[in-house]
Simulated assay, not measured.
Amino acid sequence: MRATWLSAASEIGVNCATGSPAPPPGCAASTSTLSSTSCPTGPRVIGAPITVAWNAKEDLLDLLATARTRPDREQVRDLLYRFYRRCADADLPELQRLATTVETWWPEILAFLHTGITNTGSKGTNRVIKTIARDTYGFRNPGNQRFRTRCATTRRARGHLDAR
């Protein structure tokens, strides 16, 4: 699996030929790395696996924070490389699964980074519809159930418009 992540990183321009754990030239070091100096209770207290997982999470958040900022290809490449490298070096099954998930969803994640468009609005509306449908399950009239669902999902019912 490690080779798969690194090959995915190389597809977007990351030089993985050296195999060294250091990022390629120009890749900024993580400013949010947890260590003994940055956290007084650092790795001695919370343990190395948790520290590695926390740092990988921060690397992923650094990558996602570039959304809606029109990041250039090199910036995305460097942040993605840093995340994949940390996951590959960690030998934690949870981080391997996270890296695999990011690799699987990479086209969608990249589209979000460049456009900032998500499907959260439609997911929220579908959640409301399912909740109302569950609440009205016992109704004998399907038309009434549809009416209540429509009322719950209109902008006025959600408080967006003044009813005056």
Results as ranks from 00 to 15, higher is better:
E94W: 06
R134T: 09
I109C: 06
T149K: 12
E103A: 13
L92P: 04
S30Q: 14
N119R: 10
P23I: 05
C87P: 03
A9V: 01
D91H: 15
G19V: 07
A48C: 05
A67V: 15
T100G: 15
E94Q: 12
T115I: 04
P49Y: 06
T115H: 05
G124A: 15
N126I: 03
L6S: 11
R146Q: 13
L98R: 10
R158F: 06
G121H: 04
W105G: 06
T153I: 13
E94I: 11
A8W: 00
T33F: 12
E11K: 02
V45D: 07
Q75F: 01
Y137D: 14
A28Y: 01
P21R: 00
T66N: 01
C39Q: 08
G47R: 12
N141K: 04
W106P: 06
V14A: 15
L110G: 08
R77P: 00
A9L: 02
L110D: 15
F147I: 05
G47C: 12
T51D: 10
I109N: 04
R73L: 02
D162Y: 09
A133S: 14
N55Y: 08
K130F: 01
E58T: 10
T125C: 09
V76A: 01
R158M: 15
L61K: 12
T125Q: 14
S38A: 12
T101H: 13
H160E: 14
N144H: 11
D78Y: 04
Y84C: 13
C151I: 13
T154P: 00
N126W: 03
L92F: 06
T136M: 14
R134M: 07
R86F: 01
T51A: 15
T136L: 11
P23W: 03
T33D: 11
V14G: 01
S10H: 06
N15C: 10
S36T: 08
A56T: 01
W106I: 10
T66K: 07
A163V: 02
D72T: 08
G159A: 12
S7T: 08
Q145E: 03
G121N: 03
T37C: 00
R77V: 02
